[in-house]
């Protein structure tokens, strides 16, 4: 009985399933589509990793100012200026607005120096109106 089975198996081994051209074409098409999909994924992954390019005008302005370090310094100075302005220490306000009279607290006796020490012609200008 085993001989019969062996003979049948041997005959079955001889029969090779021949895939149709259409099936081969479908399988190859799947393979190529897979490569295309992977390539597309790779491109989008690289795009995501690439640093974002800035507007050329902004890049030129930053370069003209000496690069990002210099711009950072300028920004710090700017913020400090705003902080001083918002904080408005009395002395700065008075100096900036020229508020002063003889009874002012910004008297030599109090401050050690008078407004005309800083701006010698200030009172003359004020008198002229």
């Amino acid at each position: 009985m085993n001989e019969m089975l062996d003979a049948l198996f041997a005959e079955a081994q001889q029969t090779v399933e021949t895939p149709s051209e259409a099936l081969m074409a479908r399988i190859l098409s799947d393979a190529n589509a897979e490569i295309d999909a992977r390539d597309a994924q790779e491109v989008s992954r690289r795009d995501a990793q690439r640093p974002k390019t800035r507007h050329p005008l902004i890049a030129a302005a930053v370069a003209a100012l000496g690069g990002w370090r210099a711009v950072a310094g300028l920004a710090t100075a700017g913020v400090t200026g705003i902080a001083i302005g918002l904080g408005a220490p009395g002395a700065v306000t008075s100096l900036a607005t020229g508020y002063a009279d003889t009874t002012s607290v910004y008297d030599e006796a109090v401050n050690g120096y008078g407004l005309d020490d800083l701006v010698p012609s200030f009172y003359e200008l004020a008198a002229e109106g």
């Binding site: 081969m24 399988i27 190859l28 393979a31 190529n32 490569i35």
Partner: peptide, 8 residues
């Protein structure tokens, strides 16, 4: 792609 063809 050639490898895919041979494998197929």
């Amino acid at each position: 792609r050639e490898a895919a063809r041979v494998l197929t």
